[in-house]
Design a protein around this nucleic acid. Sequence first.
DNA 1: TCAGTATATTAGCAATTGCTAATATGTTTA
DNA 2: TAAACATATTAGCAATTGCTAATATACTGA
Lengths: 98, 98
Amino acid sequence: MEEKARQIATLLKVLANENRLMIFCALMKGPASVGSLAQTVPHITQSALSQHLAVLKAHAILDYTKTGQYMVYHIADHRVAEIIHVLKKYYCADSGNE
Amino acid sequence: MEEKARQIATLLKVLANENRLMIFCALMKGPASVGSLAQTVPHITQSALSQHLAVLKAHAILDYTKTGQYMVYHIADHRVAEIIHVLKKYYCADSGNE
DNA sequence: TCAGTATATTAGCAATTGCTAATATGTTTA
DNA sequence: TAAACATATTAGCAATTGCTAATATACTGA
């Protein structure tokens, strides 16, 4: 039980960041390049975005395919998508995309 | 959307701690005094436990009733219980209470 | 091959977290 | 009322996090 708690806490630590949440939510609508994510996530620098993507990738939550000079990221762990879905259900007023 | 992300990130930060997760999971089986939680959560000091309970209470995730010299904590936000339930479903081998 | 674009990486810093040790507060019982 | 118990609070520290600024790497088209 201790080990499971540690594992889940590790996952939650990765998700417990405003910018990473917005990145992940953006990708729930479909794969996207870093550049397009930069326009979706408000007020984020190129460096910060790249670092967040690296963290999510390191935890196998995201993955990417490289096409030309673009890195197209997509969701790799659909359990996380389900968890975010539940969170949105409970904590976002269920009226569209605010 | 930014505001909602901030709000959810704040919640996840509270949950993203091994000891707080174990405290919360223990309380999913029913209310418990601080002393009994101290025996359930492995290797936790009295002070650390009390501080974790204060954090969970401050975020209205837990609440307590004081009976005599005992503080009996219980879950106050059942949305969180549902989220933990989903996490357990996905990340704990579904074979009992490990 | 050079300039421009897209992305990653690194160093370093300020803020936050989680702990321990010590102490305080409130309750019970003898 | 004193001692013991149950819990909270505080200070202070080490570790972690998230950022910016700078730089590096890799691809593209002229």
